[in-house]
Amino acid sequence: MNMLEIKNLHVSVDGKEILKGIDLDIRAGEVHAIMGPNGSGKSTLSYVLSGREGYEVTEGSIRFKGRDLTELNVDERAAAGIFLAFQYPIEIPGVTTMTFLKTALNAQRKARGEAELDAVRFLKLVREKAKPLNVPDEMLKRALNVGFSGGEKKRAEILQMALLEPALAVLDETDSGLDIDALKTVAAGVNALRNPERAMLVITHYQRLLDYIVPDAVHVLSGGRIVKTGGRELAHELEKTGYAAYDADAA
């Protein structure tokens, strides 16, 4: 069964249509990449999946595990298993990373009718997940994303994903602002989370990230539509030719 089924999806922001009929199916265990030029609607797709306010579905449908996703609000979607790794993670002054992680995990467990984790079990779990991502205790004690370097912010995002164990992870330009070493660490963290029950949608402008997170399918988004779909080799092709051939205005 498809984890995610998007049919003829039209989305408007402030009355302006950004997505103009997207069809996309992703099965559990698959990693799909969405590539495209700036302004093609990549981030809009990630936000509409997360349920962000202001992104209005005007036509079409999104089904997640067979369920109409648009019936759920932002936090309900998260508890149902959707995770968005932000291109620019938000700073939350005054809330330590540790407090934030515990609040988020327990809120999701509560929403699913599971018992909340006590402080001891939580601490053990978070340390176990943080270690391979090279996230030290000191970082967990700092306010979330406040004063974090670009690499620290992205590692913190992947730690959240590792802890929350979503069914569908949407990674929005996770490579932006990362040097090659940070990119490798982050990609290794993502790859460690690949498994037959989990699907991923990797949104990126550049092919570079896909050298490290190798996708099962690549889609080219342009002018609010998927204009081409192929295997991983499509990413390399795009790297050579650029997006000019897919320019919406030229088409």
Binding site: S50, D75, A78, F83, I90, I92, F100, T103, A104, L164
Partner: peptide
């Protein structure tokens, strides 16, 4: 939005931010 995207319900998210402030 960020806090909610991690599964924290809106009221709890607001409370977290108010307390932090």
């Amino acid at each position: 939005f960020f806090l909610r995207s991690r599964g924290i319900p809106e009221m709890e998210a607001r409370q977290l931010l108010v307390s932090a402030f």
